[in-house]
Amino acid sequence: MSLSKKIVLLGHFGVGKSSLIRRFVEDTFTDNYKVTIGVHILKKEVEVTDKTIVNLIIWDLEGNDDIANTRPSYMLGTNGIIYVYDLTRPTTYQDLKKDLDFIKTNYANIPIKVVGNKKDLVTNVFLKENEDAFQPYTDFFTSAKKNTKVDKMFSTLAKDLIL
């Protein structure tokens, strides 16, 4: 059985949305930042169980400081959401709770994974010290650069989509 599911990546610009997708789809990474404008769409098949393959259609959205400004057309027909913030830049997670509330109100019942990216740049001590800011909301700490938890994060979401 094969299913197509659309997922979108949300979050401020520069947090690593495109890099996570590139790591997941092409298994590559670059330190050079290239801004995303509008949307890039990529796809990758994920085998969630022996029999089920999910064809993930991944929408890589332009980063936005204010989630409310996300173009609604991009969100149409979305089956899953990945919200990414940057562990090294507090501005990208200081409104985490507010943004997640916004998503829950406007896209109710859509599975979501919250991801703190660039884990390679912070220490475990840092994560521990900032536990209160991260822990209650975060599903994965990832690194697109070091390929930490990237596949795991996408495939966990894929599983949630077929439930």
Partner: peptide, 19 residues
């Protein structure tokens, strides 16, 4: 691939920018 479902809704207009 993402919106084939909407093709069956008559008289609908969708605009996507910057794709």
């Amino acid at each position: 691939e993402s919106f084939s479902y909407s093709l069956s809704i008559p008289k609908k207009e969708l605009i996507f920018s910057c794709i």
